[in-house]
Design a protein around this nucleic acid. Structure first.
Length: 228
DNA sequence: GACCAGGCACATC
DNA sequence: GATGTGCATGGT
C-alpha cells in the first residue's frame, strides 16, 4: 500500500510546473550553481556533501587564496594541506581525499578538463562519475547538470523531505525513484532542472527545516497540507 | 550546550 | 539489501 498520492504524468507535469512558477514568483531567478567554471562546480559539489553552502564558499576561497585551486595542484598537494584549506566544509579529511581522487581522475581520463566529458553519452558519463569513490548520486547528478549541462534532475535531502511530507512521493522510494518522478513528468530542460532544484533547496532551507506545519510556506497552497 | 545541515562509504546483520 | 555508523565544523 502506497501512502503517497499517485497521479499520471500529465497531471504531475501540471502540478510541478505550477509549483515551479509559484516558487519562481516568490524567489526570482536563482542562477544556481554559483561558480566561475565547470571545474568549480565539481569541487563545490564534493565539498557541499552534508555541509552548509556557506562553508563551501569559505573553503573555495581558501583554496583560491592559497593558489591551490587548480586541477594539477590539487592532485599533487598533500592531503593535510588540502584538509586545512577546506576545514569549513566539515569532514575535511575525507573530502581532501575525494578532491585529490577526483582531480587525478580528471587528469588521467579527461586531460584535466571536466568539459571533455560533455561529448559522452549521459548515462555513460553518469556511470563513470558514480564509479569514483566519494561521488554518489547527488554529487554525480549535480556535476552532470550544472557543470556539463546535461538534463538530469538532482534529488537532495530537501526534495525528499518536502515531497514526502506532502504525500507526493512514497517515503520508501530510493534516489532513482524520486528522480524518475520528476524526469518522467518534465521536459528534459537543463535550465528548468537547474532552477527547480535550486528553488526546492531554498524552500527547504527557508521554510521546511524546523517547520513541520509549513507555516507561511509560499508553496503550501499548491503542495497541500503536510501529511507526515 | 545541543542540535543539525544540499552525503557517502563501509561494516554488520 | 536494509540498516547503522563514522566523518567532525560552525551557525542558530
Amino acid at each position: 500500500m502506497n501512502k503517497h498520492i499517485e497521479f499520471d504524468c500529465e497531471k504531475r507535469r501540471h502540478f510541478l510546473m505550477e509549483l515551479y512558477n509559484r516558487l519562481e514568483d516568490t524567489n526570482g531567478q536563482t542562477n544556481w550553481w554559483p561558480a566561475d567554471t565547470p571545474f568549480e562546480v565539481c569541487i563545490g559539489a564534493i565539498l557541499t556533501q552534508n555541509a552548509p553552502w556557506r562553508g563551501v564558499v569559505k573553503s573555495i576561497n581558501n583554496l583560491k587564496e592559497n593558489r591551490i585551486f587548480d586541477v594539477h595542484i590539487i592532485a599533487d598537494t598533500p592531503e593535510q594541506i588540502l584538509a586545512k584549506a577546506i576545514r569549513p566544509s566539515i569532514y575535511y579529511n575525507q573530502k581532501a581525499k575525494k578532491l585529490k581522487t577526483f582531480c587525478r581522475f580528471l587528469l588521467e581520463r579527461y586531460k584535466g578538463k571536466i568539459e571533455n566529458m560533455a561529448g559522452q553519452d549521459m548515462l555513460e558519463a553518469r556511470k563513470t562519475l558514480l564509479a569514483l569513490p566519494g561521488i554518489g548520486c547527488e554529487t554525480a547528478d549535480s556535476i552532470l547538470l550544472y557543470a556539463l549541462g546535461m538534463p538530469v534532475f538532482v534529488v537532495d535531502a530537501y526534495t525528499r523531505r518536502i515531497f514526502t511530507r506532502h504525500g507526493l512521493i512514497d517515503p520508501n522510494w530510493d534516489y532513482e525513484n524520486i528522480r524518475n518522478f520528476f524526469e518522467e513528468a518534465l521536459e528534459p530542460d537543463v535550465g528548468l532542472y537547474g532552477e527547480f532544484h535550486a528553488l526546492i533547496c531554498l524552500l527547504g532551507a527557508n521554510y521546511c527545516k524546523r517547520n513541520p506545519g509549513c507555516d507561511n510556506c509560499p508553496a503550501k497552497e499548491i503542495m497541500g497540507e503536510p501529511v507526515l
